[in-house]
Simulated scan of single mutants.
Amino acid sequence: MITIMIISVVIIAVVIALSVFTVNKGYAFKHTIDPLENNPHLPKDDESKK
């Protein structure tokens, strides 16, 4: 019974450690955005720039 409890605690600790690791790695990721002049999703409106 004790061995099952120890194995369960080890598995829970590993899952929590991996969760903390992935969340920290996700927050550390540098997100970038495209400048407006290079955005392919915006319509080209050359006449309004003149």
Rank of each mutant, 00 (worst) to 15 (best):
N24S: 09
D46Y: 15
M5E: 12
K49F: 07
N24G: 11
N38V: 06
H41G: 07
D34P: 00
M5Y: 06
T3L: 13
P35D: 13
T22M: 13
K25C: 04
I33V: 07
V23M: 06
M1Y: 09
H31N: 03
I7G: 07
A17Q: 08
A13F: 11
E47D: 12
V23H: 05
I2L: 11
Y27P: 00
P40V: 03
I7A: 14
T3I: 13
G26S: 12
F29S: 01
A17T: 08
K44H: 07
V10W: 06
A28K: 13
I33S: 14
K30T: 13
L36P: 04
P40A: 05
F29D: 01
V14R: 00
M1K: 08
V15E: 05
F29P: 00
L42S: 09
H41I: 02
N38H: 11
H31E: 02
N38E: 11
Y27H: 04
K25G: 03
I33L: 06
N24E: 06
I11N: 09
S8Q: 06
H31Q: 11
V10C: 11
V23T: 02
A17N: 01
D45Q: 10
P40R: 04
D45Y: 07
E47G: 02
A28H: 04
V14T: 04
V9I: 15
I6W: 04
P35E: 09
V23S: 01
K30D: 14
P35H: 12
P43K: 08
L36R: 13
K49P: 00
V9H: 02
V15W: 02
H31D: 06
S8P: 00
Y27W: 09
L42H: 08
F29I: 10
P40Q: 01
G26V: 04
I4E: 11
V9N: 05
S8W: 01
I16K: 03
F21Q: 08
L18D: 02
K49A: 06
L42C: 05
N24W: 07
T22S: 15
I33Q: 04
M5R: 10
G26E: 09
L18W: 02
N38S: 12
V20P: 01
N39K: 00
N38D: 13
V9M: 13
T32A: 03
A13I: 10
D34Y: 03
M1I: 03
S8G: 15
A17V: 03
K44T: 05
I11K: 06
F21T: 10
S48F: 08
I2S: 11
L36G: 01
I7R: 10
K25Y: 09
I12M: 10
